[in-house]
Design a protein around this nucleic acid. Structure first.
Lengths: 127, 127
DNA sequence: CAGAATCCTTATCGATACTG
DNA sequence: CAGTATCGATAAGGATTCTG
């Protein structure tokens, strides 16, 4: 077996041209992650909650252009994946707080790596 | 400024709860990357080409379930982003080879990090 | 405040057939 | 071999209205 799932060592990917077995989208864990975070809003929510916990309407205001429908659906999906925790405070009016779970927090590390790449190479995408 | 775009150092993300400024989807480089790779096939193609260059029909056979339409569209999109290079060999019948560009190859590193996370935590997603 | 429900428009994608 | 063209199904997403 190789070091990593893609057959590419995490640190020096560019050094080895190695064959990779054929894959179907369903059987690929990375694909599963992209399926979950690849929509327009999930990642934005993750990053925002990476800073601090947010209330529902805080998120609604922070994420310019998201509809209530999409915000709710996104949060529910992230909850189901155990990336985000939802806690209701029994106050009047009721306050609902969303925060990252430890699992969600651990995701920030590889996402951050991708973010660094994105910032470094953004100017090279398209012309 | 902070170490990384998300405000989270790449190595130890879980250690600092730091505020993150509000973002819109368009202005986020990470979002831009996910917009490009977040569909069902792009990442699969990248990983396959990370192993070695492929001919069109090789990819078609390797990726179970993709339609010609989607394969072509995916490859064209990756070409436009300078992640994949398309070279036509003037033989009969004509052979078209697809391979990663240096830029595309550099993307394998952060993607591999995400892949490692996916493999490590796949069992924690959903129940 | 934090949503659920409904409607409606658009974007995505697969299947099929055809071509230089 | 390596595509293009066309069509139809489906799903994603926004706007609006209503509620505990």
């Amino acid at each position: 077996m190789s070091d990593t799932y893609t057959g590419v060592p995490s640190v020096l990917a560019q050094d080895l041209p190695r064959p990779v077995p054929a894959v179907e989208p369903g059987s690929c864990p990375v694909g599963a992650v992209f399926d979950r975070l690849g929509d327009r809003w999930s990642l934005l929510v993750i990053v925002l909650l990476g800073g601090r916990a947010h209330r529902y309407n805080e998120l609604h205001r922070a994420i310019e252009g998201i509809s209530q429908r999409m915000l709710t659906r996104t949060l529910r999906a992230l909850e189901n994946d155990h990336l985000v925790a939802r806690t209701v405070h029994a106050t009047v009016p009721p306050g609902v707080e969303y925060d990252l779970t430890p699992l969600g927090r651990s995701l920030l590390t590889p996402v951050s790596a991708l973010a660094d790449w994105a910032v470094a190479h953004a100017h090279e995408l398209r012309t």
